[in-house]
Design a protein around this nucleic acid. Sequence first.
RNA 1: GGGCGCUUAGCUCAGUUGGUUUAGAGCGACUGGUUUACACCCAGUAGGCCGGGGGUUCGACUCCCUCAGCGCCCACCA
Length: 892
Amino acid sequence: MEKRFNFLKYEEEIYKAWEQGGYFNPDNQKNCRAVFSIVMPPPNVTGNLHAGHGSMLAIEDLMARWARMRGKQTLYLPGTDHAAIATQTKVEKDLLKRTGKTRHDFPREKFLKLVLEFIDKSKETIHKQIRRMGTSCDWSREAYTMDETRTKLVRMVFKMMFDNGLIYRGERTVNWCPGCASTLADDEVEYKKEKARLYYLNYPLASGKGKITVATTRPQTMLGDTAVAVNPKDKRYQKLIGKEVLLPLTQRRIPVIAEPYVDSGFGTGALKITPAHDMNDYRIGIKHGLEIRNIFNKDGSFNQKAGKYQGLKGGERLKRILVDLGNQKVLEKIEDYEHSVSICYRCGTALEPITSRQWFISVSKKTLRGRKGKLVSLKQRALEAVRDREINIIPARFNKTYNSWMNNLYDWCISRQIWFGHRIPAWYCKKKNNGCGRIMVEVDKPKKCDKCGNKRLVRDSNTLDTWFSSGTWTFSALYQKPEEVRLGQDNVLVKNNLQKKYHPTTVLETGYDILFFWVARMILMTTYAMKEVPFRNIYLHGLIRDKLGRKMSKSKGNGIDPVDMIEKYGADATRLGLLLGNTPGNDLRIYEEKFSGFSKFITKLWNISKFIIENAKNDSDSPVKSQVLTPIDYYILGRYKKLSREVTENLDNFNFSLAGEKLKDFTWNDLADWYIEVSKIEPGKEKILKMIFKGLLKMWHPFIPFVTEKIWSEFQDKNVKKSMLMAEQWPGDGLRGQRIDPAAEKQYEAVIDLVKKIRKVKNLYNISTGAGIKVNIKTQDKKTDKLIESQRHIIQKLSGIEGWTIDKNKKTGLLSFAFTKGVVEMELPRGFDLDGQKKLLQKEIERLKNLLRACEAKLENRSFIKRAPKEIVEKERQKLKTLEKKLQELKP
RNA sequence: GGGCGCUUAGCUCAGUUGGUUUAGAGCGACUGGUUUACACCCAGUAGGCCGGGGGUUCGACUCCCUCAGCGCCCACCA
């Protein structure tokens, strides 16, 4: 075997062997009793895998490999997302950089072709990166959110919802991003604190006497005002409610209305209402039946409703209006003010709420059968799913987050004005060509209007929010070809064989940051279209941060590229760096030292295997026989049994990190540092070593598939046909029904402790191994004497002493110290520092005394004796005895 | 304003339902070591009133309350 695991040489080769061997395809798994399925959250086709993807893939692949080894037929389905806005923005940016042109310099179809070219290239990169992580997904079933099958499905679901009245078209005030030139959903809006000015404007009463002063940060919107609102409880304004004011600059009459939403304590307590250009004003406007007066064009400039200001935009417009307002003595005062501005979560541009005609999904219209048979809305059904634990969220605290978001959900605006994406499958019968204006929603383009027969049909130019299609992902990804996408009875999509077996999926693994964007949407869409939940479990991972806890970002340059780490330290070390210390729902800090640290462990594992293979070459895999077992064999077998139980339990409970920690601890400490060291002294351990190590390889495999697979192949008999580790069964405790006395394991701990204590003292006084030191040991019972005597060679060798006596009455030296089952007295080496020893002894005595005192206090406490369980009290009594004995013996 | 999380060794974190913990690991620091896998190693040392206070309990790092600091999400007062 090579000196170290040469991951650069083998990783690709091993991955190919898995893939070509068909191990990723569940159809090749025979005789399975259970099923496990996970659909990969599709990375955007836009670019490179980042550390977040890396951790996602590591966790998912761990689950998939583990499930397979436990005999579950496992589907891990990969895919990519067309990511409408993100992709289009990226292509537009590149285009501008390369040619100086914008998308509007091209016909729509030509531009889309450029997007597709970009995607083809980008997809390849992502495929490669996913493979390099060792991801064991079934490539034969890869899906893409915008391929033919998914396109048909998206249209089908759209039509279902439209026919049900869940999708409707409406004139609404929505968030408009001038940067993306598109609408955004409410939760795609972010807020940023910004310094601004608060302008106080006087609106004269129409009656001619008096005025109302309103405060605003955007005086330019005043031309769209259709009311002034005051709080009905505000005494200052009560008598003005129902009267009218004259809107300055235009002299339009607008009413003064009563609205409890208005905060009397803010500004002047009077709020100008601009329903067309403010989300809250819009709600108030609808409530009071106010005119929605849109004064902006799509590019942000004023339209004809702004009268003489038409066409103006930006700072110049603001200046003109302020000057005019000033001249008419409308502008009362200006204050500095800090408030939050709504910005686009993708491009950061300040949003302009505008009113326009958009498509929406109603989340509160009742069209679905709930769990109790009643008609419920999408929102109610989605709440039910989590409340009734059809879906289990890990960690559980996100239940609360999910509920509060779902409870506050408004109708979802799904139309976008960008070009790239699923185009809305709605056709209009063109009025200008003698049509009737009917809207038809169909999967395929209708030949003619189904009402008037007109053949001039025009398709809606809008595209769908990217979350609409990804909201169908768990089931849409399972369709294999367009023909399978069919509407069945009762408004449910017909399941294909794959879905019958694997849907709902076992677990959805994703970041908590897209709980709303994506996870919640999937629940809405799936409970509607499939009438079942999309998944049984949601495992939410945290965000990946840098060493200082900052988010990783390109602009900060603090990102760690997982592929870089793979190239430097190997995919296995990279996976460990992303898996260990990573707990559900909590952010993970990563930095290069972490990965280099784990690469050391990979080397350690490699070396252990080298040792075992060299020593156990000719040993068969026959079962371990109890009659030849020595005390340390019992010890290691007991520990191994416990380990296999704990690892399985922890993996079952999604505690991946803890399972890995335990494995690492056992591998390095119990196995390498103790058992292997002892095996060099006490021969005949080949069978056990091999048995345990093979089990360990299996348990390690889901964490670090490459190196374990390689080592596994080294164990294979060259003459026998090779089997792959990834297809092995998950190991049991390796004992084949044989009993291991737990007391034996416990007892052996005394031996380990004795060795450790002797080493410690020797180290402390700089006593070298060759010094020929002898000790006398005084123990508390004959059993221990016997055990220690039987381990003579091992103890001597490991602790580096020449020999010992076991004699209760012997008084040899001043250098005495305790171990768990007794006291050791060490011969004095020449030139020994007596004072130092006394101090050490004193320290030990103090420590034991403190423990003793605490122990005594506990036992003197009557309620403790009365109320604590018997075993605990008994344990405490034993502890006291041991401590007393030890103290006695230590006293000079 | 509403909600959630974090605070344990110099740093990064474990500690799963309160008692096998006499609080652990890795990194870093320090001491010593080439003993037929491994110097990407081995043996060992130092370092912590488990953020402060109160409570429940026989018993609290663990449960409850409260305060403080940090972070996140949602709402957004114009």
